[in-house]
């Protein structure tokens, strides 16, 4: 009897977007007089960081500094429609809507700047910090602020844009199941290292090593947040969580954070991850959704690592100490002559 270590692997894919009811989102963008840009949405930030991601996408398309972008969400009186934050769709859908809106706004911005600088708008480029410069002509430029002021007070132009992204609804063929249920697929492979106490069935996850392919990491720091937080949740689902500990018996359901078991700060493994990018053809800058999937691959990886460690094959989540111990007992009984 001892603590045994094992390693398990799992590889998964995850769909971006829900596409069985049509899946649109919209964005409106306008410049303020002083060349800041307000992006009006009705999308919801659950903590995944929508405002930051949308700021970066807006700044990239407009060619301005992220500091000049304000995300105004969510108010149904002012924000255009968004289906909502779910199905790993927000970066993809709202990001695409913003690209469309920002592209339109950028065109007006460059038109106005071209008139101010007396050059064709095609000859202009943005420097990403707040200036619009004439290509190949050092020193000939106008600030975004001055262009915005001119648009408002001189040219009578609205530097604004409207954007929508709609993945049309897919109607499944109920005979064959043929359908188009998603926009793209992200990928992950996780390796779990665990230690099993064979006397008690307790499992400790020592390390989770992952590789994620997510199309484009718009903000690698926030990708990391999803990976670490999602790995933790996956471990939690694998070993601890249930609202019905004796499912399908309804007894003993937890009602607080003591009984609804999740790993605490003392139970966390070491995390290690690398990111791969294979840009999707339809995501903003190729981005795919990563929000949901980071909790998925750790679960089977941990289950497989437990088997590797001690030979207990648990097919029933969560993998409680009791289930591990019952499996070890059954194996011991079977091994008896």
């Amino acid at each position: 009897m001892a603590k045994l270590r094992g390693r398990g692997i799992a590889a998964v894919n995850y769909p971006t977007g829900m596409n069985l009811g049509g899946d649109p989102s919209q964005a409106l963008i306008h410049a303020t007089t002083t060349g800041n840009f307000v992006v009006t949405l009705s999308s919801v930030d659950l903590g995944q960081g929508l405002r930051t991601i949308m700021t970066q996408i807006t700044a990239e398309v407009l060619g301005i500094a992220p500091e000049a972008v304000m995300i105004d969400t969510a108010d149904t009186d002012t924000g255009p429609h968004c289906m909502g934050t779910f199905a790993s769709r927000t970066t993809h859908r709202v990001g695409n809507a913003i690209i469309m809106a920002a592209t339109e706004a950028r065109k007006v911005l460059l038109d106005v700047a071209g008139e101010e600088l007396e050059v064709a708008p095609e000859d202009l480029e943005t420097d990403g910090t707040g200036r619009i410069v004439v290509k190949g002509v050092p020193g000939k430029s106008i600030s975004v602020q001055d262009a915005a002021l001119a648009a408002h007070f001189k040219h009578g132009r609205t530097i604004s844009g409207r954007g929508i992204y709609l993945k049309p609804r897919s109607y499944p063929d109920f005979e064959t199941g043929a359908m188009d249920p998603d926009s793209c697929q992200a990928h992950a492979c996780t390796i779990a290292e665990v230690e099993v106490d064979t006397e008690t069935g307790d499992v400790r996850v020592l390390k989770l090593i992952s590789a994620y392919e997510i199309g484009r990491a718009i903000n690698p720091m926030m990708v990391e947040q999803q990976i670490v937080g999602g790995s933790w949740m996956g471990m939690s689902h694998a070993l601890y969580e249930t609202t019905e500990p004796y499912y399908p018996n309804r007894a003993h359901g937890p009602v607080d954070f003591l009984g609804y078991l999740m790993p605490g700060p003392a139970d966390i493994p070491e995390y290690d991850a690398v990111i791969l990018e294979r840009p999707s053809t339809n995501g903003p800058f190729g981005a795919k959704g990563i929000g949901e999937m980071t909790a998925n691959s750790p679960i089977p990886a941990i289950a497989n690592a437990i088997f590797d460690a001690c030979g207990a094959r648990i097919d029933d989540l969560p993998i409680t100490p009791e289930k591990v111990l019952r499996a070890l007992d059954a194996a011991a009984l079977a091994a008896q002559p």
Partner: peptide, 18 residues
Amino acid sequence: FTDTYASAWYRRRVLPVF
């Protein structure tokens, strides 16, 4: 006893260990 954390079976089973 059985509760959210463990079944009566498990508690009996691991009591000698602990």
